Simulated assay, not measured.
Amino acid sequence: MIQNNNCPLHYTMNLIGTKWKPLILFHLLKGPLRSGLLQQEIEGISNKMFTQTVRELEKDGLISRAVFPVVPPKVEYALTQRGQSLESILKSLDQWGMDDNHTIKQGRFCCYL
């Protein structure tokens, strides 16, 4: 998944720059979540895309997957230490979105309406 490139931003965007990865990582900042609950937090994600995305995040060492031997099966995802290191970036993106959305709602940028 990760390509060899000397540009740090290119490396980072290859790692977390899809539509769903930052959302999954952001929701895991609250702590470990069961698979079903995590998927419910991500509005609009299909089962297939959820599975593909969490597998990529796990492969890249950003999240961990724990399977509990119970019936029905319980799967829980959590941020790894590497994933937790993205906290300030994810929170900054969230804050920027809140601020920009507020600006748009006030009509400061009519071209976005």
Results as ranks from 00 to 15, higher is better:
residue 23 L to W: 09
residue 78 A to F: 09
residue 105 K to N: 11
residue 46 S to Y: 00
residue 52 Q to M: 02
residue 102 H to R: 15
residue 63 I to S: 12
residue 23 L to R: 11
residue 71 V to M: 11
residue 100 D to G: 14
residue 101 N to P: 04
residue 24 I to V: 12
residue 93 L to R: 11
residue 43 E to W: 07
residue 25 L to K: 11
residue 5 N to I: 07
residue 35 S to G: 01
residue 32 P to W: 03
residue 79 L to A: 09
residue 44 G to C: 11
residue 106 Q to P: 14
residue 48 K to D: 00
residue 105 K to I: 08
residue 45 I to L: 01
residue 56 E to Y: 13
residue 19 K to W: 12
residue 3 Q to E: 02
residue 27 H to S: 10
residue 88 S to N: 11
residue 80 T to F: 10
residue 107 G to P: 07
residue 33 L to Q: 05
residue 21 K to P: 03
residue 1 M to I: 02
residue 66 A to Y: 13
residue 50 F to D: 04
residue 80 T to R: 05
residue 103 T to S: 10
residue 105 K to Q: 14
residue 47 N to C: 09
residue 85 S to A: 13
residue 36 G to Q: 00
residue 97 G to T: 15
residue 17 G to L: 07
residue 94 D to N: 04
residue 19 K to V: 06
residue 9 L to G: 03
residue 68 F to P: 02
residue 73 P to H: 14
residue 39 Q to A: 03
residue 59 K to M: 07
residue 24 I to N: 02
residue 73 P to Q: 07
residue 9 L to C: 08
residue 92 S to H: 07
residue 75 V to S: 09
residue 103 T to L: 08
residue 57 L to M: 02
residue 104 I to G: 11
residue 21 K to Y: 01
residue 23 L to Q: 12
residue 27 H to W: 14
residue 84 Q to K: 13
residue 48 K to E: 00
residue 24 I to M: 02
residue 92 S to D: 13
residue 18 T to V: 10
residue 30 K to S: 15
residue 62 L to P: 13
residue 24 I to H: 06
residue 113 L to S: 10
residue 19 K to M: 12
residue 48 K to V: 06
residue 88 S to L: 15
residue 14 N to L: 00
residue 91 K to H: 07
residue 14 N to Q: 01
residue 6 N to Q: 11
residue 79 L to W: 04
residue 52 Q to V: 13
residue 79 L to V: 14
residue 85 S to P: 03
residue 90 L to D: 10
residue 36 G to E: 10
residue 17 G to Y: 08
residue 98 M to F: 13
residue 52 Q to H: 04
residue 52 Q to P: 00
residue 88 S to G: 10
residue 39 Q to V: 07
residue 27 H to A: 08
residue 14 N to G: 14
residue 108 R to W: 13
residue 64 S to M: 02
residue 41 E to C: 08
residue 99 D to Q: 03
residue 39 Q to F: 11
residue 69 P to C: 03
residue 99 D to S: 04
residue 84 Q to A: 13
residue 42 I to Y: 07
residue 48 K to C: 08
residue 111 C to H: 15
residue 40 Q to Y: 06
